[in-house]
Nucleic acid binder design. Sequence first.
DNA 1: TTGAAAGCGCTAACAT
DNA 2: ATGTTAGCGCTTTCAA
Lengths: 339, 339
Amino acid sequence: MTIKDVAAYCGVSVSTVSRVLNDHPDVKDDVRQRVRQAITECGYVPNNSARALVLSRSTAIGVVSRGVDNPFLSSLIRVLSRQIHQLGYTMVLHQIATQDDEVQAAAVLQREKKLLGVIFLGGRFNYTEQELRQLTVPFVCCTYTNTFGDLDRDAYSSVSIHDEREAEKAVRYLVHHGHRRIAVLLDDPADNSIGQLRFQGYRRALEDCGIDYDPALAVITGDYALSAAYDGVCRLIDSGVGFTALMAISDNLAIAAIKALTDRGLSVPEDCSVIAIDGLDISAYTVPTLTTLCQPAAEMARESVQMLIGLIEGTGVHRHRLVETTLRPGGSVAALADT
Amino acid sequence: MTIKDVAAYCGVSVSTVSRVLNDHPDVKDDVRQRVRQAITECGYVPNNSARALVLSRSTAIGVVSRGVDNPFLSSLIRVLSRQIHQLGYTMVLHQIATQDDEVQAAAVLQREKKLLGVIFLGGRFNYTEQELRQLTVPFVCCTYTNTFGDLDRDAYSSVSIHDEREAEKAVRYLVHHGHRRIAVLLDDPADNSIGQLRFQGYRRALEDCGIDYDPALAVITGDYALSAAYDGVCRLIDSGVGFTALMAISDNLAIAAIKALTDRGLSVPEDCSVIAIDGLDISAYTVPTLTTLCQPAAEMARESVQMLIGLIEGTGVHRHRLVETTLRPGGSVAALADT
DNA sequence: TTGAAAGCGCTAACAT
DNA sequence: ATGTTAGCGCTTTCAA
């Protein structure tokens, strides 16, 4: 069943059918009706390959996701997938390992799948114009922005929280509960990414509150593996350095931290308060419930798709959308008892 | 940069280049070399649309996943994605809601994206030949098989655990630890899917161990939502019916159950043992560590892709692969103290 | 407002 | 072993 068959079926030319298919204006209303009907009756489905060939463009939007086992990104991907499909495009999902380069991956994908645009999830914050020259389609950074790079602000789009400020907010929350010996759990304080920014927020909050930074309280895991976080927190406890609270840069890390604390005989929040940033569903079911700053995942995903499609269809411009987290109070933070 | 350009570039015809591209035998070795080199030098990437058009087939494999927020399926999807890409195909991921019909969705997707085949994740167990006539490409059921349907065993493939037997194993494990009042936490005992099968396994284990089934000990949640599981277990506790152990049909549900028990002042495993089936990473970090039967997710995903591609390329036949779980002993099961 | 026809980049049958 | 060429199904000039 091709366009030709449909044309023959209702006695018009292929070009007329094509016009109807593409909502061109120059078709008489009754003819348009007839063609529409024929299309339904024949159960005709346009051949996307042929269309892509002649238009020399596909309908594919790339989603390149860093951090394969990050459940927060999984939740974003679910919404992206739905949204992209709904708007008539195809999602090409590409997950890369932590050590892989997402720009490289996107560039390859762009050529292979003729991408119209790319949404990056959880990437680096330090792209240079240089390296992005390989990428010739519009892209939007979801969950981050190009803080450490030299990109022109109107050469790309982004949807993110203000990582530094939100981390600061989390730490201040602990300080307001009387804590001053606050540990931090993160992948890497110089990852040119979320870790670095949230670590900066941690430092800034301490500074603003007149608390000295103690490097012994920083647990660096190297990645987002639960096991590394668990081991790191165990080592922190075993080191004997005193602390009454911990800020984890992600819910996942916080879950591992709570486990480590508990296994070492420390109660959360009595002996140690824990706060994080993300707002996973599952972290509402830890014991105790994790207190966390929730990112508006669905909103971020929707916004990213809208921005990108605006760019693709030429009706939008590059924008940078900053969204806010909302505190989900759990049971993992308690006021420090006076002693 | 087209095949024509490459041909001109090294002074051969397009067909020769095409032959090299498709690994046809009839090309002299030195010519093959020259063409290969030209391809690299020109940075030529074949146009998939054109190729798909002439072959009247795409390179797309559909993955239709039921149960949008199931982290076990997410982990499968990660492996599927990698595997499919590696073998030169494209994954078209389609996530559907619990109430949607996956066969319907696959049929639509098949026409829209010219799918070569479909991998179903977490679907129903009761397909009829009738409804599957819409689907004209090979498919494999990953994580389940057609227990309740009338499909010919060599009309489709499957990769799954033996749900009933594994659930039975889990319950027996509890019985061996002295438990006889064993609750079960599931979505629906008649969902024609995993819930039903694992519930049967629960029933059978009880029967074999000479324990009467008590309907009051079955917590039906309606779906896999954490909140529903939490509420259900709370109601069970509040009902005052006695039980010393609980088998959850998935890790996620078990996590919610542990939370509910703990919130109600019951200790796991002292007051109630908990066991589940899945083996999520995260459930190793609950407090206490969840004792669970781990499904070999990576193996299941790889196997599914291999089967499907075998079918697509005509080198394989329909098979039904049964994989085994492995017990991951945690801290959530204890022997029942004599009282 | 409609139709005829060129051609998008590729593969494969056929010719050499 | 290599080249020539006819389409695959569609969009889009161009002509009517």
